[in-house]
């Protein structure tokens, strides 16, 4: 089963390192596209922000 392999081969510190780096990188991208109030970012992502349900202007 794939379920077992992933948890068996990773130490706790490895898992936390992977999890935190993916979480932070993802948060950074989501913040930039969805939440940052910079006018240029807002204008580029305007339609996406509305369509995704991000709070927008």
């Amino acid at each position: 089963m794939t379920t077992a392999v992933q948890s068996r081969t990773l130490s706790i510190s490895q898992r936390i390192a992977i999890g935190m780096s993916a979480l932070f990188l993802g948060s950074f991208i989501v913040f930039g596209t969805g939440l940052a109030q910079d006018a240029r970012l807002h204008n580029a992502a305007h339609d996406t922000r509305h369509a995704t349900g991000f709070p927008c202007h």
């Binding site: 990773l10 999890g19 935190m20 993916a22 932070f24 993802g26 950074f28 989501v30 930039g32």
Partner: peptide
């Protein structure tokens, strides 16, 4: 971004 966060949370 959402995919990265979801993968990160799963770990």
């Amino acid at each position: 971004g959402f995919a990265l966060m979801l993968a990160g949370l799963s770990y």
